[in-house]
Amino acid sequence: MPVKKRKLPDAGDHEHRCKLSSLTRPHIRPVRPMGGAKPFSSKRCLAWFHEYAGPDKVVGPEAMEKFCEDIRVEPENIIMLVLAWHLEAANMGFFTKDEWLRGMTLLQCDCTERLQSKLEDLHRELNDAAAFRNIYRYAFDFSRDKNQRSLDMDTAKSMLALLLGRTWPLFPVFHQFLEQSKYKGLNKDQWYNVLEFSRTIKPDLSNYDEDGAWPVLLDEFVEWRKSRSAS
């Protein structure tokens, strides 16, 4: 999960968080009983949060690095995006107290060890088509600058590499197309359609319908790809 060191939004960002939450309800798997272990404790969970929260009472970028080190997950690992989705975090690089308590309560994690025991479950959610679609869609609002309607191209390429780089055969070619294209960013419609394109269009593009309702961006990608193959 690429970390951007942004200022923590003020209370005026509450409307955005509510909208984000209403559109991306996390898919929570049943909690596995931990034989002989103490039950989940909200008090312990809050104390865990304060181990990382600074004066602003938020886990910011520097504390996030320490958090990742403690749970033994690289900050750029896609698991951090899945975790942020579960917490319904509104801003990349930050976990607020409310987000932490809500998400960790649902995950029943009140300490480092319990979260580590959940990492495999979080990773498996990437193989669930419905959950992955929600995570992918969540990533757009999560990673964009909140004063912009689109996702800047550098961030878009990084997030696409994180989400589709290992599973979409055409991703390296699509990445090259974005590198040389006129586009400075991706809007939400383009972002959503890239996922559908990656899931439904064959690597040889043989089933691509030029008269379909794809964004112009993808029409141009197909034309560019075919022209390169022909030459």
Rank of each mutant, 00 (worst) to 15 (best):
F177W: 14
K188A: 08
E99N: 10
L106W: 06
M34R: 14
D145W: 08
S42C: 09
P9Y: 11
D211R: 14
W214D: 09
K184P: 02
S117V: 05
R32I: 13
V194A: 11
E220T: 07
L164K: 11
R17K: 11
K4S: 12
R144V: 06
L115N: 02
A129W: 01
K57F: 04
A89R: 01
H175C: 12
K157L: 13
E210W: 10
D70M: 00
G36W: 02
Q148E: 15
G212K: 15
S231Q: 12
E125L: 14
S42R: 10
D152N: 15
S181V: 11
L87D: 02
S206W: 07
A139E: 03
K226I: 06
H16S: 11
E113L: 08
E76H: 10
W224Q: 07
P61M: 01
E179F: 10
F140N: 10
W85I: 06
L163Y: 04
T96K: 04
D98V: 06
L119M: 14
A90G: 15
Y208P: 10
L160K: 05
G60N: 02
D154F: 06
G185V: 09
L20E: 12
A63T: 00
K4G: 03
H123Q: 11
S117C: 10
M153Y: 01
G103D: 04
G36L: 06
R25T: 13
L195P: 02
E196I: 12
K66I: 04
E120K: 13
P26W: 04
S117Q: 14
R144H: 10
M64Q: 00
K38D: 06
H14I: 04
E88S: 14
E99S: 08
S150D: 13
E15Y: 08
G54P: 00
E210H: 14
P26G: 09
A230W: 08
T105P: 00
W214P: 11
Q180L: 05
E74C: 11
